[in-house]
Amino acid sequence: MIILSIILIITGVFFFFTATFGLLRFPDFYSRLQATGKGDTLGSLLMLAGLALYNLSSGISLASILVSVKLLLIAVFIFIANPTATHALTRAGQDAGVEPWTKEEKSK
């Protein structure tokens, strides 16, 4: 069980890393939002699932199951809230008139 949770946490860290890499290297507002919106959601889901499993590995009792259920509730909350926040930011950017990046603009 510990090995499975370690695998989940390392995968989550990898997705966080790619999300941050995309945030730093992508050219414009929308593609940066796309990187962080997807990467952060999946990364935190995997890390919270790994932590819930790790918490159960030291012995299954009522208290540890309760803590794991709370962690999974946080994961459900992030799964709903994070894409919505990304959507709201994108809409706000579109309404404020942020132009998407194109290749022609770069060659100027």
Partner: peptide, 11 residues
């Protein structure tokens, strides 16, 4: 925006 309104209402 129906997505934002619905999610805020549910959350």
């Amino acid at each position: 925006n129906i997505i934002i309104k619905t999610v805020c209402r549910i959350l």
